[in-house]
Each structure stands twice: as structure tokens, then as C-alpha cells.
């Protein structure tokens, strides 16, 4: 139970009201690798359109690496991994996971085609087409995971529904910029550096906005326990990575260090969000107090036939 929760608020022996998500750490790892792949695909498309061959190859390599490892995390976390394909028998707009499965499948396929063509230097026109579609799908791939966790009853996620997708997009941009800056000679890496800086600044700003909008009770969970540890790591890494990229990104060693820091910050941010959700779900007051303040019609009392005017609230404390 978080330190900020009032101890006099009602609960059933302090037990959680909602279930803690059953997802393991594969899921934040997937958010990171999927985000890296999505933003890198768009960066590669930008490089393709601007004729920056060297940067295109680096960004495509990062996208391909992300897209190649993502299915491992995604499928491993299923209770019945062999039934992954059951997700491809339906399309449901009410389920960001269902929509995301299709986004992810399309993005992986197009990235794989582009990467294979690049690797074997064959079918350049197919490569360009595949890269084009991968770049178009990339932003969806980088943001749907934010929508996925927001579409839940977990207070630290659902109440941050307006900010989480943009936080994930920022974090993905920072990681993609960082990865491409590491892999690309400085003279070709200008857009990667700038994307890293834009992403880093946006990630820091989106985090602050999210915590502010969540308010004290729920927002503080991002600074407690495991979530707090990863939030501090993410903030420090992203801050340092952004600054270093701006100051020393034109030097290869500087770009390598800054890129590594941005990647670390992005990864830690997903772990912070993941743990914040678990911690928030465990605290019954995160669920009950905002709900009580919001009000509603879940509890009803039939108007008494004798016109009983007494207060309906019981005196059971």
C-alpha cells in the first residue's frame, strides 16, 4: 500500500479491488523493442526520402533488430504461446491488443522484407515499397502499446490515458534516435541526433505532465518502490543522454554514449510504467477513492415507501 493512501479509507482487509496485471517483464521489454522498431522504421523512411543512404541502413538495422526480437517477448508472455495465432482470427477495435497484433504483424513483415532486400542487395523497388509501408505503420506500432495499457482499469494507466500514448511515442523516438546515432557516422547522423533530442525532451515533458495530471494519490506511485527506482533511472539517463547528444553528439564517442543513455532511459521508462501499474493495482484506494469522488449510480437505494429521510450512510466505523 502506498504511503500516500489514507489509512482510514474503507477496504476489505487492505486487499486489492482489481487484479494486478499478470504480465511479466517480457511486456515492458516488448514495449521497448516494439517502440524502437516502430520509430526506427519512420526514421529509415525519412532517410530514404531525403536520400541519406547511410542513415537509412542504420535505422533499418535498428528496426529489423527490434522487429526480430519483439515476437519472442510478446509470445513468451502468453499463457499458451502456441495459440498466438488465435489473435489473428479476429479484429476488434475495442481491443488495442487486437488492433496492435495486426499493426505489429504488418510492421514486422514489411520491416523483414525491407531488411532482407537490403541485406542481400536484391529487388530495390520492393525494398523501397516495403520501407514506405513500414514507415507508415511505424508510428502506430510505437504508440498502440500506450493505448493498450491505458485501456485497462489500472488507475496509474487508465487515468493517464491521454498522456501514455504520447509518452510511449516520445520514448520510442528517443530510443530510435539514440540507436541510429550510435550506428551512423556523425556526418550522416544529424536527423538521428535531432530525433533523439526531440524524443528525450518530449519524454521528460510527457512524464511530468502525466504525473501532474494523475494527481497526488495515483501519480505518486511513479515515485514509489520499483516504479520509483526506474523513474529515477529513466529521468537521469534521458536527461543526460539528451544533453550529451546536444553537446557532444557530433563526435562518434559522444554520440555512442548519448545514444546508449537514451536507449537506457527509454527502456527504464517502460519498466517504470509497468511497475507503476502493478503497484497501483495492488492499492485498493487507488481504485476506490477516485471512484467515490467521481460518483455514479452503482449504489442505489429504493425510495422508501415511508419517506424515510434519514441519511443512507451507515455508521459502522
Amino acid at each position: 500500500m502506498s504511503a500516500t493512501s489514507p489509512t482510514d479509507a474503507l477496504s476489505y482487509y487492505g486487499r486489492p479491488i482489481i487484479k494486478e496485471p499478470v504480465w511479466e517483464t517480457d511486456i515492458p521489454l516488448y514495449f521497448f523493442t516494439g517502440g524502437l522498431a516502430g520509430a526506427s522504421d519512420l526514421l529509415a523512411l525519412g532517410a530514404q526520402l531525403s536520400g541519406n543512404h547511410r542513415l537509412r541502413v542504420s535505422a533499418l538495422a535498428a528496426a529489423a533488430a527490434g522487429a526480430a526480437i519483439s515476437p519472442y517477448f510478446l509470445i513468451k508472455d502468453l499463457g499458451r504461446p502456441l495459440r498466438f495465432l488465435n489473435m489473428l482470427r479476429v479484429f476488434k477495435v475495442t481491443s488495442p491488443m487486437s488492433v496492435g497484433t495486426w499493426i505489429f504483424s504488418a510492421e514486422s513483415a514489411t520491416t523483414a522484407v525491407a531488411a532482407a532486400c537490403e541485406l542481400f542487395s536484391v529487388m530495390p523497388r520492393l525494398r523501397v515499397t516495403a520501407q514506405f509501408f513500414a514507415g507508415l505503420i511505424g508510428p502506430a506500432q510505437a504508440t498502440y502499446t500506450g493505448a493498450l495499457v491505458a485501456q485497462s482499469v489500472v488507475p496509474a494507466w487508465h487515468e493517464a490515458r491521454r498522456e501514455l500514448p504520447v509518452l510511449f511515442a516520445s520514448s520510442a523516438s528517443a530510443s530510435a534516435g539514440g540507436a541510429a546515432a550510435i550506428l551512423t557516422p556523425a556526418e550522416h547522423a544529424g536527423p538521428a541526433r535531432r530525433l533523439g533530442i526531440i524524443g528525450g525532451v518530449a519524454e521528460l515533458a510527457a512524464s511530468k505532465l502525466m504525473e501532474w495530471r494523475l494527481g497526488k494519490l495515483v501519480g505518486s506511485v511513479y515515485h514509489e518502490g520499483e516504479a520509483g527506482k526506474y523513474t529515477r533511472l529513466a529521468t537521469a539517463s534521458t536527461l543526460a543522454g539528451t544533453a550529451l547528444m546536444a553537446l557532444a553528439g557530433r563526435r562518434r564517442e559522444g554520440a555512442a554514449a548519448a545514444g546508449t543513455l537514451l536507449l537506457t532511459g527509454s527502456l527504464c521508462k517502460r519498466f517504470a510504467v509497468y511497475h507503476a501499474g502493478k503497484q497501483s493495482a495492488r492499492d485498493p484506494h487507488h481504485t476506490s477513492i477516485p471512484q467515490k469522488e467521481r460518483g455514479g449510480r452503482a449504489v442505489t437505494q429504493p425510495s422508501s415507501r415511508t419517506g424515510n429521510g434519514s441519511s443512507p450512510s451507515p455508521t459502522t466505523r
Partner: peptide, 23 residues
């Protein structure tokens, strides 16, 4: 749901703008 998909669309758009700005 509408708010969430809307926020995701805005975020995806912002990501595209960010990449464009980088170039």
C-alpha cells in the same frame, strides 16, 4: 475508448512531426 484511440492518433501524428522536424 474514443479518448484513448484519439490520444494514440495524436501521439502517432506527433511522432511523424518529430521525425519530419529532425530532417
Amino acid at each position: 475508448l474514443g479518448t484513448i484511440w484519439g490520444a494514440a492518433a495524436v501521439a502517432a501524428g506527433a511522432l511523424a512531426v518529430g521525425v519530419a522536424a529532425a530532417f
